[in-house]
């Protein structure tokens, strides 16, 4: 089931790429349509969709017709382990209604599919890193090294976290 829906999604966007989007200056010819890291979440499927003209976070419905009542373009807030994200209701045939959130609106600067894929994979990892009201507890560990201790902090006798 999971496999079927995702391959339907990629097939649909593959067709859009070769038909409606062909030759537009917004497309990056080094890229192709690919679904990255789709996994079940709360009864739905969450993953990243790469296309030559965008990279989006995509949520697919748990069953056919689940979101048919939602208006196109409506905003829905999703709570993932890393926080809340606002997605936009979208409809494309024959997939039906799904929800998406723009990660990159132009992908012209991606060198190749490998680069795009590795970023998509990173996004999926980060999305599911739990930050349950940690209020910054996770951030310091991940902060860039030079931000851990400023010179002023050092002179004041603060310690690196």
């Amino acid at each position: 089931m999971q496999h079927t829906v995702v391959s339907k999604l990629t097939a649909t966007f593959g067709r859009i790429a070769s038909e409606r989007m062909r030759g537009l200056p917004v497309t990056n010819d080094a890229l192709q349509v690919e679904a990255v890291g789709f996994r079940p979440w709360d009864g739905r499927l969450v993953g990243v969709l790469i296309a030559p003209w965008f990279m989006n976070l995509v949520v697919l419905p748990g069953r056919d017709g689940e979101w048919d009542d939602l208006a196109d373009g409506a905003k829905v807030t999703w709570e993932l382990p890393s926080g809340e994200y606002e997605l936009t209701v979208a409809r494309v045939e024959p997939v039906g209604v799904y929800q998406s959130c723009a990660l990159f609106s132009s992908v012209l600067d991606f060198r190749d599919q490998h680069m795009a894929r590795s970023i998509a994979e990173t996004v999926m990892q980060e999305l599911f890193v739990k930050r349950d009201g940690a209020r910054g507890e996770t951030a310091p560990q991940r902060a860039l090294p030079q931000e851990r201790l400023s010179r002023r902090g050092f002179l004041r006798g603060e310690r690196a976290r």
């Binding site: 970023i119 990173t122 951030a139 991940r142």
Partner: peptide, 28 residues
Amino acid sequence: AVPKLNVMGGVEADANKIGVVLAGAAAV
């Protein structure tokens, strides 16, 4: 139509760096 869509920031970074930015932003 806008002939060229340039992307500011982010994309030129590699996957690791994006990860760092993403994580930092989410927590802060």
